[in-house]
């Protein structure tokens, strides 16, 4: 069957086309075309969003990433990236230069894969998303409902992602894959933490690839606040994450392997950040 292709020049036109049955938006196409090639998706109409072009910017508090902004463009922002080291670390590990020159954070978030590196990092950084055409704003964590499922109504699409700066925080990012950055990860961690001496003032911890969505436990983060980061706390907390997380067994790793990996990633993060354990 023939596919039709459109590249509208305004948000309104994108919205009008998106209402039509069998239509699919794309920017870099690095997720969508691979799925089409495998026959997972059979769109009737492809809507190229690259007809609308806004630049990413830092407004002094948050980084605003509009659709069609690629990873390479963000990484080339130089000075600005120094304020977003966790994001920078994660983006540098997305795919290859070829993928980073085309792939976009907006595509990564809309793909809503629990293995998405940008999705993981932006979730930990408590990003907001702005939804066109009415520019409705909501929390990224509420926007992503499950694997491949996002909160978009008919005619709506993602316009931008807004990520606050986390000043005074230390960070850690790591993904574990079978071979290298090109493979989908077995498990990944993104972490932000602020200390006062040895005492944890604030902490955010997220895991990717170990559940249908990005996994974060607010009560465990709360439990760490005001505590001295020592061996017994790290041991207790990492065991609790391991106990709670319910990953699946798939081609890449077993459930048991992933559970142990989650604990070890936390131990490693705290060891490298604070020399604990």
């Amino acid at each position: 069957m023939r596919i039709s292709y459109f590249k509208p020049g305004s948000l309104e036109e994108i919205s009008e086309l998106k209402v039509q049955e069998g239509s699919h938006l794309f920017s870099g196409g690095t997720d969508l075309f691979v799925k089409m090639r495998y026959g997972v998706f059979k769109p009737k109409m492809l809507i190229d969003t690259k007809g609308v072009r806004d630049d990413p910017k830092f407004d002094g508090e948050k980084l605003i990433i509009p659709m069609n902004t690629t990873y390479s463009e963000l990484l080339d922002m130089g000075e600005v990236m120094k304020d977003f080291p966790l994001l920078e670390d994660a983006m540098k590990e997305v795919g290859s230069p070829q993928i980073r020159n085309r792939g976009t954070p907006v595509g990564n978030v809309c793909n809503a894969s629990p293995a998405g590196d940008f999705l993981l990092t932006a979730t930990v950084m408590d990003a907001d998303v702005v939804i066109a055409p009415k520019m409705r704003k909501m929390k990224l964590k509420e926007f992503v409902k499950g694997p491949g499922i996002v909160d978009l109504k008919n005619g709506e699409f993602l316009y931008s992602i807004e990520i606050p700066r986390w000043q005074g925080y230390e960070h850690y990012f790591e993904k574990v894959g079978r071979r290298n950055a090109m493979n989908i990860s077995i498990a990944s961690i993104a972490l932000l933490i602020r200390f006062n001496g040895d005492v944890v003032e604030d902490v955010k911890i997220g895991f990717g690839s170990v559940g249908p969505r990005i996994v974060m436990y607010e009560d465990l983060e709360e439990r760490m606040k005001g505590m001295k980061l020592n061996e017994s706390l790290v041991d207790e907390i990492s065991r609790e994450y391991m106990r709670r997380i319910e990953p699946i067994t798939d081609l890449r790793a077993t459930k048991r392997y992933r559970k142990i990996l989650v604990r070890n990633l936390l131990l490693k993060a705290f060891h490298l950040l604070k020399g604990v354990v």
Binding site: Y5, G29, T30, F33, Q98, R102
Partner: peptide, 15 residues
């Protein structure tokens, strides 16, 4: 593409 390496198999000709 415009001086940057990209994968031609993952790009629609029209785009």
């Amino acid at each position: 593409m415009d001086g940057k390496p990209v994968l031609s198999c993952a790009i629609l000709a029209l785009s």
